[in-house]
Design a protein around this nucleic acid. Structure first.
Lengths: 132, 132
DNA sequence: GCAAAAGATTACGTTTACGTCAACGTAACG
DNA sequence: CGTTACGTTGACGTAAACGTAATCTTTTGC
């Protein structure tokens, strides 16, 4: 509660990104830290957004797409029409995520199978080695 | 069974990628189609690998990393030492995938919650609109 | 009160993952 | 036998996502 605001370096340490990255994201309008004179101060909102940005990246979403989606999370004071559009966009995105999960599950299953097979193979290889 | 081999265009149609992409992947040693004279012919192995490549990309893995991992899937005639290394690499990768799934689940939960909240908000906004 | 540290801006460089010609080979069709 | 379609190899171009100085204020520790 003492400080709701973080300097750029604190952000870097906390999230494991460079200052350049944070400035880049600001320029791309993904973040909007407030200014104390010249310096940037990152709010709780910025941190929440950055977390989502990094998560999105890990799943292969381009920054531009992520930018669109970020507005789903801080529902501000939008107009009804705009808001409806936001909702449908969220639904679309949610379906995408679920599809990804299905594929990810498949990938996990396949790799796990492969691994089991591989471990058996390894065992018999060691067998042969010992028989030499 | 009639043809185990596909031309470059058949591959493009089947996977929704361009010829340039396939040649690029070959150059990067992710694929290794055989040659009929000058022309490329893609085998079943190539198709399996391409599927994995595209999947990997969807989860945000860079091509170079994907290349390393591809060898996990076609376990050829490796030496024991090499093979052991391959296995551990696979285990590492599997853990990564599981971690990704956990995070993906979290993302889905959060977004679903947000959506529900949003839908309620939307309902009350329409309420207000009607009361006007 | 002054040097070191932290932050800012501007601008050019880099890597990844292809796109986009250009120029050529060849094979099949009418 | 010409042209149309499919394929090949360079080679250069490009968009995204930062990296990397270079140069300038602004704090802050001693």
């Amino acid at each position: 509660m003492t400080d709701d605001l973080m300097t750029i370096r604190e952000m870097c340490d906390h999230f494991g990104v460079t200052a350049r990255t944070l400035r880049f994201y600001e320029q791309k309008e993904l973040l909007s830290p407030i200014r104390e004179g010249q310096k940037r101060l990152f709010t709780r909102r910025d941190r929440a957004r950055l977390k989502l940005i990094l998560r999105g990246k890990r799943f292969g979403f381009p920054l531009e797409e992520i930018r669109q989606l970020l507005d789903l999370y801080d529902v501000g004071d939008q107009q009804l029409t705009q808001y409806t559009r936001t909702i449908t966009l969220a639904e679309t995105h949610l379906n995408e995520l679920k599809a990804q999960r299905a594929e990810l599950d498949e990938a996990i299953r396949e790799l796990a199978d492969q691994l089991e097979w591989g471990r058996n193979m390894l065992a018999s290889m060691e067998q042969d080695e010992a028989a030499e």
